[in-house]
Structure formats: C-alpha cells, structure tokens
C-alpha cells in the first residue's frame, strides 16, 4: 500500500514540481458566494467580529458565546442564553433570555445549503443577521452595530483591508460577509474516519471499526450521509417538546403540514463535543442519543449497550477533527471583554 502511495507522489512530482498540497479528506472545495470571496483579511476581520460583544445589546454576548471553541462551536446548553445572561459561555450560563432551540455547531456550516434547525436561512451571510436581531439572542440592529464599528479606527482599517475597493466599507452587510468568511474556515474534514477510508486502517481502533460497521448496517448514513455525516433532509424528531415552547420545526418555513415537527438532520462530525443533542437539547449523552435514534428509524433496531458503545466510539474517535478550531483573540478592537472560551478558562 505504501508503495502505491510513493508512486502516486512521485507521479505528482513529475508533472508538478510545486509545493505539495496535503490531502484534505474527501470534501469538495468550500462553496463560496461570488459576492463574498474569502480572503485572509476578511477572515481575520470576521474572527474579531465573531468574538466581539459589541454586536449585542448588553455588550456581553458575542457570536462566540453560543458557538464557543471548547463547546464544539456550540455552547453545551440545551437552549442558549442570550443578552442579559450571567456567567461565561458554557453550561453554567443562565439568564432571562433563553432561545427556543439548541445552538447548532458551526463545524462545516460552510457546506450547508440551508441553516438553522428549520432551514430558514440559505446562506451564512443571511444566517448571521438572525441572532443579531433576535431580542433573545444579541438584540441589536445590525446597522446600529455598523455605526459603532465605524467609530472605532482599528475596525475601520480592518474593513478597508477586507473590502479594499469600497469607498465606505463599514456596513452591516460587510460585517456579516466577514463573519461568514470566517465561518467558512471552520471545516472539519480530516478525522480518523477520513484517514481510514483513505486506506490507513490503523486510524480507527477495533471498537470504532465495529461502530462504523454498525453505523452502516443500521443505515444511519441514509440521513447522516458521508462525508459530511449530515444532509439537507428534514426528519421527525422523537424527543419530547419543551413545555411552554411552541416549535413546529420545518413547518414554520414551508407551511406544509407534513413538515410539522421535522428538523434538519445535523452533522455527526465532532458530535462528541456538541452535546446536548437534538433541536431542543433534550438529550445530554451521546450514547442516549444514539440509542434513541437507532431504534425507530428505517433499517434501525434496538441496540445492546455494547453496540451502542461501539457506535459512540466510532463517533467520538472516528469523527472528531478540530484542526481548524479558531483562536480566541485576547483583545478585540472595541476593547470590550471577549467571552471566555474554556481553552483559556475564565482567565
């Protein structure tokens, strides 16, 4: 096998003496809107905006509050806590403004044709505006944020660098473009599973390999489809609704009665990090989520505890890859406090 690899590389060299681009899994290139090409300057601006609580009404909530690094680019909460909340990002956070649904992970959000559990946004640019405006999340008018940004010289020069051909680049539209460009870098595509399918059989241990076989036998991939381990399908949820919360799922977008109670199939990449699970975060443990899903789905069945643990081993060991995890800036241009992320614990 290694001989084959060697020959392939030699062949590559013969035709192209340039630097080697390492294989990056089996993902296609990140889809990028024509109107918003990704550049390093834009990504860096987006990273700073993503971590800046200037975007929220109480000046304490940033995008990273609900999409934090140590929480699998989610927040560890069943449902997120927006403005006027208390405590750093994570499971200890509490407050009066609780969202209806679980914060989706941003891992591989770049590839999604539809975003949110009900699929109501069709681009990262459009998605980013929703939590900004939502009074329970960040609660600020994006244009008002843009006016504040325009008064901060460091941001003005960052916007100029990112949108060089525009006379007045500090706008809410460019703000979400930059955030979207940053989010397009959050790609998880080289987990041990990817190495395994590329022929490195040592990449998965015996348990994880058993788990992968079970995953296939149970036809989990019908919806959690490789290589993304998600799909643009909307499926019935089996978890209990939260009392007092009205949530009709995909129906709210399509108006089709058949979509009532259906939600977008989430990714299983980095699922070990993105607890709790399902649209309202009703299930905390990955093993419980696996058992709950395996039994009633087509091709599925009730699992023994050992089988469930094998599938969990596959998901945890096989599908975790966070090489592209973002760095939390220690300081942002607004001078406000960056929400703690856990890797740099409340320090």
């Amino acid at each position: 096998m290694r001989g084959v690899v060697a020959l392939a590389l030699v062949a590559a060299c013969a035709s192209d003496p340039g630097p080697v681009t390492p294989p990056r899994g089996r993902f296609p290139a990140v889809p990028t809107p024509v109107a918003n090409p990704t550049t390093a300057a834009k990504v860096e601006l987006g990273r700073l905006l993503f971590h800046d609580p200037l975007l929220s009404r109480d000046r304490r909530v940033a995008c990273a509050t609900c999409h934090g690094q140590i929480w699998g680019l989610s927040d560890g909460l069943a449902r997120s806590v927006g403005v006027d909340g208390i405590g750093p990002a994570g499971t200890g956070r509490h407050g009066p403004n609780v969202t209806r649904r679980n914060a989706s992970t941003l891992w591989n959000a770049a590839y999604r044709a539809t975003l949110f559990w009900d699929g109501r946004a069709d681009s990262l640019e459009a998605q980013a505006l929703a939590p900004l405006r939502d009074p329970a999340e960040m609660g600020r008018d994006p244009d008002e944020v843009a006016r504040d940004l325009a008064a901060i010289p460091a941001y003005v020069s960052l916007f100029r660098a990112a949108f060089a051909n525009e006379a007045a680049p500090v706008t809410s539209a460019n703000m979400v473009r930059a955030i979207a460009a940053f989010e397009r870098t959050l790609v998880s595509d080289y987990a041990p599973y990817d190495r395994y399918v590329d022929g490195d059989t040592g990449a998965l241990d015996a348990r994880a390999t058993r788990g992968l076989r079970l995953f296939e036998a149970l036809r989990c991939g019908q919806c959690h489809t490789a290589p993304m381990f998600e799909s643009e399908r909307y499926e019935t949820s089996f978890v209990e609704a939260v009392s007092g919360v009205t949530d009709e799922g995909r129906y709210e977008v399509t108006g089709d009665p058949a979509d009532r109670g259906r939600y977008r199939v989430p990714t299983l990449r980095n699922a070990g990090e993105t607890f709790p699970y399902f649209h309202n975060g009703a299930v905390r443990e990955l093993g419980d989520a696996v058992a709950l899903e395996a039994a009633p789905r087509p091709g599925g069945r009730a699992l023994t505890p050992a089988e469930r643990d094998d599938v969990v081993a596959f998901l945890r060991a096989g599908l975790t890859d966070m090489h592209a995890q973002p760095e939390r800036p220690d300081v942002v241009p607004s001078g406000l406090m960056v929400p703690a992320d856990g890797y740099r614990i409340p320090r």
Binding site: A40, A41, V43, E44, L45, R47, L48, A154, S157, L158, A161, P329, V331, V332, P333
Partner: peptide, 8 residues
C-alpha cells in the same frame, strides 16, 4: 493574523 497590528 492580518490586521493584528499589536492590538488584537
């Protein structure tokens, strides 16, 4: 990163 300028 781009735009760091020592402030971020």
């Amino acid at each position: 990163p781009v735009g760091d300028g020592g402030t971020t």
